[in-house]
Amino acid sequence: MSETVTEGPSGLQIHPMDQFVVKPLFGGEHINFYTPTNVTLWMALAVLCVIALLVLGTRGRAIVPSRVQSVAELLYGFVYKMVEDVAGKDGLKFFPYIMTLFVFILFANFLGLIPMSFATTSHVAVTAVMAMAVFIVVTIVGIVKNGFGFLELFWIKAAPLALRPMLALIEVISYFVRPVSHSIRLAGNMMAGHAVIKVFAGFAGVLGLGAVAPILAITAVYALEMLVSFIQAYVFAILTCVYLKDALHPSH
C-alpha cells in the first residue's frame, strides 16, 4: 500500500487514482486494443470464477446439492426470479444475457476488492459498453415487438392532453440518458469506494504504527464496499430488467 504515498517536494502525496491505470502485463508502453493488460488478467480471473462456480460447482448435478452447487442454484434462482418478476414471463428468454451481465459484474466487483487488484468495473469504458449494449438491444426489441406502438412509452395516456407533449419531451430525454446513468452509477460507485480506501491507506502509510483511525476507517469502508459490490451488480441487472419490461410492454 505504501507505493501510493511518495514523498515529493510538497510532503504528503497520495495517488488514489494510480490503481485504475491500465498497464500492459508484459511491459511496453503502447497499448493496442489486443495488448494483454491488467484488464485482460482480471477479466480472465472473473471468467475463471464464473466457470468455477457455475460449471465446476454444478458438475455433480446432485439432487441434494453440495455447498458450491447450492450457491450456484441460489444465484440462478435469484436472477431468474428477478427477471420473471420485473420483466415478466416473456422476458425470460433474455435471462441468459442478464445472468451474464450480473455474474460478470458481481465477480469483477468482488475481485476488485482484493488488495493490489484491478477493478475492471470501475472503468466507464467497461460499464458504458455494457449499458450501451443493453440500451441498443432493449430499443431494438421494443421496436421489433411493438413497432410504432413502442412510441407509447413516451406518450403518457394517463396525463392530461395538454401536458403530454411536454412529458413526451422529458420521457425522451430520460430514455436517452438511461445508458449514461446506467453506466456511470456502477463505475462511479466502484471508483469512489476504491479511491477512498486508497486515500485512507495513504494516511495510514504516513502515520505508520499509530494509524489506528485510518485502519479502522479502511475496515469500515471495505465492509461497505463489499455491500456496494453486490448491490451495484444487482442494481445493474434489475435496471436492465426494468428497461426490458418497458420494451416488451411499452404502455404505462
Binding site: V22, I31, N32, F33, T40, M43, V50, T120
Partner: peptide, 24 residues
C-alpha cells in the same frame, strides 16, 4: 486505453455468455 478495455470486455462477456447459456 478504451479500445483495449472494450476488446477484452467483449471477449469476456461472449465467453461467459456461451459458458452460461450452453453449459451452466
Amino acid at each position: 486505453s478504451f479500445p483495449n478495455q472494450i476488446f477484452w470486455l467483449v471477449i469476456t462477456l461472449v465467453i461467459i455468455y456461451f459458458v452460461l447459456s450452453r453449459i451452466s
